[in-house]
């Protein structure tokens, strides 16, 4: 790998991956409760525009991030009410949510392309980021990046080792049984859906406020769909979602660096490699049917209608 600095590559891949990771970890929890929300892309882009608009107008990136979360959550609530209370089809509703989000964001963002958002300060002092090797990798990022990793750890802990996690999984595996035990299936699912919306919205706000520092129509460019693929790739396991996101971001960051280093590989192949690798991994993962089926929440995508 002549001419490619591994440290800057790692720093870049972490930044590239974070929006996708945030959206994926949110969707993972949603799917763990047995709900398939295909509206991730729509919630992300709405979070991106609202985060940007609020950050520009208030001068506070923190308020921007909160606005991104709130708008993602509001959009997910539409999905929640439609699918959980009015029992609409989850796939169709999710797709509609994506289309709605893309249109709504374009409308909300009119006049904002080219505005400059306020700078986001890093949590660690600049001196720490100058420590050789580990400095830039561990201490040179913005707060949201650390938050995303903490979020993965928290989701892993809550799902695997707490009563709340047990309830979430019970609802996702067999909603009738959970209902019979007295758990409020719809309420739990609604809360998970809102959590997923907040994560997707935060991912979008990170994209517009930190990574690109600009707002453009359709700027998520399919990141929400990558997040959905990552959840399957991860077999609904939080740490694997992190691995998958960093792998995807790594290939994206690497292909640009291979080009910049003048390494003689056809550019077309490099440019599509992140997507090809995602597809290949998905095919390998799902070729073993029994294993995928074992990990997928049993009630995923099924309509729950409380009887009796």
């Amino acid at each position: 790998m002549m001419g490619i600095d591994p440290i800057t590559l790692i720093v870049a891949l972490i930044t590239v991956s974070t929006p996708v990771l945030l959206a994926a970890i949110g969707e993972l929890v949603v799917e763990k409760t047995g709900v398939l929300n295909l509206g991730v892309e729509g919630m992300m882009i709405t979070g991106a525009v609202m985060g940007f608009v609020v950050a520009v107008n208030t001068g506070s990136p923190t308020l921007g991030f909160l606005a991104g979360m709130a708008s993602g959550m509001a959009l997910s609530l539409i999905f929640g009410v439609l699918t959980q209370m009015l029992l609409s089809n989850q796939v169709a509703t999710g797709l509609a949510l994506t289309l709605f989000g893309l249109g709504l964001s374009a409308l909300l963002g009119v006049g904002y392309p080219g505005s400059t958002p306020p700078p986001v300060s890093d949590p660690f002092p600049a001196a720490m980021a100058e420590i050789p090797v580990i400095g830039p990798i561990l201490f040179g990022h913005s707060l949201i990046i650390y938050l995303s990793v903490l979020l993965v750890a928290a989701v892993w802990y809550v799902l695997g080792y707490t009563k709340v996690g047990l309830i979430i999984r019970a609802v996702g595996e067999n909603h009738d049984a959970a209902h019979a035990l007295g758990y409020k299936v719809i309420r739990i699912r609604l809360m998970a859906i809102m959590f997923g919306g907040a994560c997707a919205g935060l991912g979008g706000a990170f994209l517009s406020v930190v990574r690109v520092q600009n707002w453009v129509d359709g700027m998520t460019a399919g990141a929400g769909w990558i997040a959905l693929a990552l959840v399957v790739f991860a077999s609904w396991k939080p740490w694997r979602a992190l691995l998958g996101a960093y792998l995807f971001g790594g290939v994206t960051a690497l292909q640009l660096r291979l080009q910049a280093a003048g390494i003689n590989i056809p550019v077309e192949i490099l440019a599509m490699s992140p997507y090809v690798i995602t597809i290949i991994v998905l095919v390998i993962m799902s070729s073993d049917k029994s294993r995928t089926a074992l990990n997928a929440p049993a009630a995923l995508g099924k309509v729950f209608h409380a009887t009796g």
Binding site: V212, V216, M219, A221, R257, Q259, A261
Partner: peptide, 27 residues
């Protein structure tokens, strides 16, 4: 000259990543 083909006229995220990759290569 180090040339990166972005395959887009307008995609701020890709353009920003490409600029960062070029800077990391010493540009």
């Amino acid at each position: 000259f180090r040339i990166v083909w972005a395959y887009t006229w307008f995609d701020p995220a890709v353009e920003a990543d490409a600029a960062q990759a070029l800077i990391d290569q010493g540009a």
